[in-house]
Amino acid sequence: MSGPLAELRGDCRAIWSDADVRRAAFEELVHAAAMGGDRLARALARIDGAVVEGLERLALPRGPIRGVVQTNNPNVLGRKDPSCTFEINSIYIARFLRGPRGTDSILRTWVHESLHGRRPYAEGHLAEYRRAPGYEEGLAEGLAQIVARRYGGLDPPSGAYDYYAAVYRSLASSMDIEIEQLLRALWRSPTGRVRHALPLVMDNLRRTGGYPPMTGAQLRMLQARADTMFDQSRGLLVPNELTMEMVWKTVLR
């Protein structure tokens, strides 16, 4: 672990840093899910507490949620509902535990869903998600990968939402902006306002780096390209970041 996560202590530290402890915590969650009651509540709280404390150390705190509950859909690993309930599924967690890197995937997903919960959803979040879910999913996944890999020392495989995360990575890279700086700036916007924030954030970060302000035409083109790349239909594609960078560079011409 590195950065602020290296300062974690006790059980939180063990869950982040020790793969065996992490695995045991998730296995207990799977067993507890069959029992319900206090045992399940304790197992959920143990892992959730480690995620919450880690995110607070990283200055990416989760906002208030209604609670962590089991969902019965066997193909949902984790999901943050607009009602502020965080859903997990122990059957799916059990499937991930079959592989050696599975616990890294589960913890990254828990972080991803917690990042959705940074603030109450903004009015208009329906329109943004329906039009282009990648603005929000790419933000949550991009930051979750940074938290997991850069700070947590984990190695989750790239998979879910990686196309959208790659859109942000390629955008930052093509415009000489550090990806974590870009995603942290966007994270300050609530779910439903990320699309609106993107051109302004990009322009501000570029100007801070000594580049001239972007023109109105460039900002409109940036938004149009982003709308296309964050479209729902692209969510499961395998990303090609070099091609994406070429697309972004046309914005500045």
Partner: peptide, 21 residues
Amino acid sequence: TLMQLETLAACVTMSINMLRL
């Protein structure tokens, strides 16, 4: 496989989100 699980999780979760909208 782990990759298939990742893909399915994203596919189903985004679909549920769209229906919830």
